[in-house]
Amino acid sequence: MIIVKNLDKYFGKEKVLNNISLEINKGDIFALVGHSGAGKSTLLRCINGLENYGIGTLKVFDKEIKELKKDELREFRKNVGMIFQHFSLMQRKTVYENIALPMQLWKYDKKEIDKKVMELLELVGLSNKKDSYPSQLSGGQKQRVAIARALTLDPKILLSDEATSALDPNTTASILELLKKINEKLGITIVIVTHEMDVVKSIAQKAILLEHGNIIGSGYIEDLFLQPDEKMKKFLGEEEVVPETGINIRLHFPKEIAQYSIVTHMARTLNIDFNIVWGKLEKINTHVIGSLVINIEEKDEENVTEYLNEKNMRWEKA
C-alpha cells in the first residue's frame, strides 16, 4: 500500500533522511520510531505530501507522491487522514463543526455530513460533547475529536504524528485502544510516529527504527525487541550488569514459550545450580516476550548448551 524505496531528503544541505526503504501493507499498524530529530516526522509527512523529497520513490496506492499535481495531491489527501501531537483543532469551532470541516470543504451534502459526524462522534465516544469548544475538553478528548475529523473522508490510511506524546499514560492507553479499534473495525492502515517505546510495543505490528535519518532496524515488533542487536540496545538505552566470572548465557523467550518454566526444569534435569543475574519480561501487543541471563560455572557449559539446543531455545553468550 505504501512503498518507499531509496528515499533521500535534505533540509538545505543537511541530509535528514538517508536511503529509506520500507513497505507498509494494507491493514498494518506500522511504527516509525526514533528519538527527536531522527527524521521520523519528516518521513511521515512525505507520505501525504506535506513534505517533498528529492531522490527515491514513495508510492502510495501505486501513485508516486512527488509527481502528483496540486489538485491531484488534494484529491489524494482525502484518502490519508492525519492526527497531530497538539491536536490542531480550530479553537473557534465546536466539536461538531471541527469534525464537519473536511466534508464542508469538499462540499458534501449537509445531511450526509450530519450523519457521518454523528456516527464518528459515537465511534470516538464524544456524542455528548458535540457542542463544546476545544478549550472545554481534556487532551484525550481533543485527540478523539481530531481522530474523528481525520476519519470523515473515509481514508484508507491514518497517519499519527506523536499523537499520544502530549497525553498522560492512562489517556495514551485509551487513545491507542481507539486506534486499534479503528484499525480492526474499519480496516484502516495506521502509520504512527512515536518516540515512546511503550506505544510501539502495545499497538504496532511492525516498525522501523530511525536514527539520524538512517534505518537502523526494521521488522516485526517481537523480533526487534526480543533479540535486540547492539545498535538496538543502545537505542533503547538498556544496559545490563552481569558478573565477570563464570559464563553468562542469555535466554530469549519468544512468545510461544514465554510462559514455560524452562529454567527450573533445566536446573532439575541437569542437577546444577546457577544464578539468575538479569531478566526482563515485556508485553508486546498481546504476547509476553522476555529474556533472562543466567550465570553458570564453566564446567557446566557443555551440558547447559546441549540442553538448550535440545529444547530449541534461542540463546547466546552474554
Binding site: 495531491l73 489527501r77 490519508v80 497538539h86 490542531s88 483543532l89 473536511p102 470543504l105 497517519l159
Partner: peptide, 18 residues
C-alpha cells in the same frame, strides 16, 4: 494562527484559498 491547524487543513486536502 496555530501552524498545526493550517497543516491539519492541508492534510485533509483544503486548498490555499480555503
Amino acid at each position: 494562527v496555530d501552524k498545526g491547524v493550517v497543516e491539519a487543513a492541508k492534510s485533509f486536502g483544503a486548498s490555499n484559498f480555503q
